[in-house]
Design a binder for these strands. Structure first.
Length: 572
RNA sequence: UGGGGCGUCGCCAAGCAGGUAAGGCAACGGGUUUUGGUCCCGUCAUUCGAGGGUUCGAAUCCUUCCGCCCCAGCCA
């Protein structure tokens, strides 16, 4: 691979800063937060990071870098029953992969459990929190509805002393799960349901992946998040739109406690067609065996994309290009593919591989002879170097590059037609050999010895150039071809009685045996390449010395396929 | 029927102390090309969810309406 291109150096039309950067710039100018910028990326370690998180990672770490600030990595681990170390490990790896550098600031909400507990007691002492005896069902009933106000709990006016005692006994483990809960005392008739005395601490007799059995009460998101931000001195707490209603509570807790108060700003979360971006649903794909794991190359997880061969740089470029706004939006999957191709085109060496081989015998080529061609790894950039490719009397070409009857504008091989074998010779189809079912199993050609290298001295033009491998020296490789994981554009929109799982594309993985030219097949250092005319591929970790495995990251743009479809809509 | 948001080209998205619609992707047309790839050139919103109003002038201000999203976890 060569050095990365720099797509950000076009000075022609740099879009203005997005609304978040504009607000931060304004705060900087006014001296708010002492003109400091400090963000955080705060995932819960309850699953693997995905495309949606990359938007947040690029935003938070990007903003910090642009404003000469800092960005923390914070694992929001307040729910021990859902969180695992496997997930925190993957999160650290994925964020690092995307270039997020949190230096020594790797924090955990669980680091603050003691402090958080102290704040909760403080809230009680302020008369702003109380221990609730109602059951979960009763609390729900008392909460009212979206249109009707709630009712106050009969336990709402316990004395501070009683609340304190009860809360301490909660911590001491004297009660069962669900027996009590600590609630903020705010306003049961607030039009914002979030403010109707939200629960801030619950009892959970469960081991926590970091604090073990030390705690049996755990703070809830609304209580832990704002205070964690406050403790870390975050200036701008960036989160997705669904937390907008929670901002009032975020502000209330901080103001009531009188502590340092960051600014929460919400942005629209990322949606992409043909995929699902929800940890809750992704985990079902993994556990239901729909994919081969969190890092299955079909998964929209960062580990899946990485294994698929998507470079971090392409993902960052994608995030930069989709922009930032507060409008719900769904980005086309093909836009991601464009960003991947754009990057890989500049960086990947070209090689030849045949995915669906059909044999070609060149009848006038001397039997038993082999010659070696030096071929550039990149047609436009000699710095990529060259490799040697053997040529002989028997070769394989792509089945799709031959037609018994050539459709209009077909530039490839057909009876009587001449094509160029890339960097080798012109060949002309003279005959075909069919099997007992009448299917073509071999093509017989002649070659023009004077066209060596792929150019004829008589200046004769051939429209088609096809790729090939020499039969005797070709290496067997496994190739995995991927399609969309879902066969619908929006797997979130399900028909009555169905779930998103009913839309999983069962043909999203096709594993085939292919043939590759020898040099790059043997060079295990060559991690990602372009198979000429086919797409970008990367070496998978399942590779063995005997049998390399390649994943198709993305196909090349295929204008011919589009044309053929248009001209012959119902054909073949 | 409560509250909070959002609606600019097929998809993203600038523009919003009013001055007469950036850019990218896609699409379409053309050129270069030993990848039907890349690259290059060109076309692509008289209109900004709809209707009223203010104004010399509105996507930007006012107003009414319509549509979509979020909130009734002891999830985050």
């Amino acid at each position: 691979m060569k050095d990365s291109p720099n797509p950000n150096n076009n000075t022609e039309s740099t879009p203005g800063p997005d609304f978040i950067r504009a607000r931060i710039a304004a705060d900087n100018l006014s001296g708010r937060f002492n003109s400091r910028v400090h963000t955080r990326f705060p995932p819960e370690p309850n699953g693997y990071l995905h495309l949606g998180h990359s938007k947040s990672i690029c935003l938070n770490f990007g903003v910090a870098a642009e404003f000469n600030g800092k960005c923390n990595l914070r694992l929001d681990d307040t729910n021990p029953t859902k969180e695992e170390v496997e997930y925190v490990d993957s999160i650290r790896e994925d964020v690092r992969w995307l270039g997020g550098n949190w230096e020594d600031r790797e924090f955990y909400a669980s680091d603050y459990f003691e402090k958080l507990y102290g704040y909760a007691e403080q809230l009680i002492k302020l008369g702003k929190a109380y221990v609730e005896s109602l059951s979960a069902d009763e609390i729900r009933e008392y909460r009212g509805t979206l249109t009707a106000p709630g009712r106050e709990s009969p336990w709402r006016n316990r004395s501070v002393e009683e609340n304190l005692e009860l809360f301490r006994r909660m911590r001491a483990g004297e009660f069962k799960d669900g027996e009590y809960v600590l609630r903020a005392k705010i306003d049961m008739s607030s039009p914002n349901v979030v403010m109707r005395d939200p629960a801030i601490y619950r009892i959970r007799h469960a081991d926590h992946h970091r604090t073990g059995a030390k705690w049996c009460i755990y703070p809830l998101y609304d209580f832990a998040h704002c205070l964690s931000d406050s403790i870390e001195g975050i200036t701008h707490s960036l989160c997705t739109l669904e937390f907008e209603n929670n901002r009032e509570l975020y502000d209330w807790i901080l103001d009531t406690l009188g502590v340092y108060h960051p600014q929460q700003i919400e942005f629209a979360r990322l949606n992409i067609t043909h995929t699902i971006l929800s940890k809750r649903k992704l985990i079902q794909l993994v556990q239901g065996g729909y994919v081969r794991g969190w890092d299955d190359p079909r998964m929209p997880t960062l580990s899946g994309l990485r294994r698929r061969g998507v470079p971090a740089e392409a993902l960052k470029e994608f995030c930069a290009r989709i922009g930032m706004s507060r409008a719900d939006s769904t980005v086309e999957y093909s836009f991601l593919e464009f960003c991947i191709r754009e990057y890989l085109n500049a960086v990947d060496p070209r090689i030849m591989a045949v995915l669906d081989p059909i044999k070609v015998t060149i009848e006038n080529y001397p039997e038993g002879e082999t010659e070696i061609f030096d071929m550039p790894y990149h047609p436009e950039d000699p710095a990529f170097g060259k490799r040697q490719v053997p040529f002989s009397r028997e070769i394989y070409i792509e089945r799709d590059d031959f037609r018994l009857e050539a459709p209009p504008k077909y530039h490839r091989l057909a009876p009587g037609k001449e094509v160029r074998l890339r960097y080798a010779y012109f060949i002309t189809c003279k005959d075909v050999i069919k099997d007992e079912n009448g299917n073509v199993k071999e093509i017989v050609c002649t070659y023009d010895p004077k066209s060596r290298g792929g150019e004829s001295p008589d200046g004769r033009k051939v429209k088609g150039t096809i790729h090939w491998v020499s039969a005797a020296q070709a290496r067997r490789v496994t190739v995995r071809l991927y399609e969309h994981l879902f066969n619908t554009e929006n797997p979130n929109a399900v028909e009555e009685g169905k779930t998103f799982l009913d839309y999983v594309n069962r043909d999203s993985l096709r594993e085939i045996e292919a043939l590759m030219e020898p040099a790059p097949a043997e060079n295990t250092e060559m991690k990602q390449v372009q198979f000429e005319r086919l797409g970008y591929f990367c070496r998978d970790k399942d590779s063995t010395p005997e049998l390399p495995v390649f994943n198709r990251t993305v196909t090349l743009k295929d204008t011919w396929a589009k044309m053929e479809k248009k001209f012959l809509p119902k054909n073949a």
